[in-house]
């Protein structure tokens, strides 16, 4: 009797765990399906190419061109990435290869604290510090700007994703066995040659995924960016132009567009684009990582 009872308890517990796991697995699909249903109105009544590639945004006149938002998002994220790669890569190499181990012990809590600061604080800090700096920086290039532009957005995002990427990179460099460096050094390589030819090569899949994850975060980050990026609906042409990224579009307008039903649907479509880009991006970096891992 008690044997049967215990067997059933065992089964039921397994079933529970499976159900919860299943919930997590289907969550992204529910999310995507919901967004698709909600944006169906605008997709069915407008051409997809018009939505994605035109730049006229007049909801009252039934003109929904998402190009300014998509291009703003791309500008902000890519500028952030370009700034983040050297900063994060060099500092993680320094921490793991050159510095004494006490430096890492000191840095770890600093990085964790930076990672835990709410994004609205980064936004306020951006308005107070980065925006004026952006005005000055633009002046060096002879450009007049309010300071609320792509450059400010990228700088704020940079500070936000540095701890995130740095954490991953440090871990990646730390798990490379020391014997690999020893092998390279014993063959007469210098420390720098060892880093360049062996460690970076070994870490490449991890480095790609770290920056991939960072880029996804940058693409989706909302509050801090919208506070400094200007939110002007116009395709930006350089880094000192104002932009209006997709997440800012949704956050700024949601709740105010009830009078125009299609507006609601348009914002859902913006969310769908965001989700799709991030999914495609994750998938692509996974494929790349798998290829790189063959040689690592």
């Amino acid at each position: 009797m008690s044997g049967l009872y215990r067997k059933w308890i065992d089964r039921i517990n397994e079933a529970w765990m499976f159900v919860f796991l299943l919930l997590i697995i289907i969550l992204p699909f529910i999310l995507a399906a919901g967004l698709y249903l909600k944006s169906y109105l605008i997709i069915s009544e407008n051409h997809l190419s018009d939505l994605l590639f035109t730049d006229i945004w007049k909801p009252a006149e039934n003109k929904f061109g998402f190009a300014p938002f998509i291009i703003s998002s791309v500008w902000v994220s890519l500028s952030t990435l370009v700034l983040a790669v050297p900063v994060c890569l060099l500092s993680s190499i320094y921490i793991t290869q050159y510095a004494r181990s006490s430096v890492l012990k000191l840095m770890q809590p600093v990085i964790d604290i930076l990672a835990g600061i709410p994004s609205v604080i980064y936004g306020v800090w951006g308005v107070l510090m980065i925006v004026p700096f952006s005005v000055k920086a633009a002046e060096w290039f002879g450009i007049h700007t309010t300071g609320y532009n792509i450059f400010s957005g990228a700088l704020v995002l940079l500070v936000m994703i540095i701890p995130f990427i740095l954490n991953i990179l440090i871990e990646i460099f730390r798990i490379i066995p020391e014997e690999l460096s020893e092998a390279s050094l014993s063959l007469g390589a210098t420390k720098w040659e060892t880093i360049k030819f062996v460690l970076l090569r070994k870490a490449l899949p991890g480095i790609v995924s770290a920056f991939g994850l960072g880029l996804s975060r940058a693409f989706g980050e909302t509050i801090a960016v919208l506070m400094v990026v200007g939110n002007v609906i116009k395709i930006p042409h350089n880094i000192f132009d104002a932009g209006y990224p997709l997440p800012a579009l949704i956050a700024n307008n949601y709740g105010e567009m009830l009078s125009i039903p299609k507006y609601d649907s348009a914002l859902m479509f913006a969310a769908l684009i965001l989700l799709a880009v991030i999914l495609v991006f994750n998938f692509a970096s996974r494929v790349l990582i798998m290829r790189l891992e063959r040689y690592a």
Partner: peptide, 21 residues
């Protein structure tokens, strides 16, 4: 030191092939 190290080949406990061909 790199010249001195090249006078000695090192074989470690486990093989650590460099991440290349």
């Amino acid at each position: 030191i790199t010249k001195i190290r090249q006078k000695m080949g090192l074989l470690s406990q486990r093989p650590y092939p460099l991440p290349m061909s």
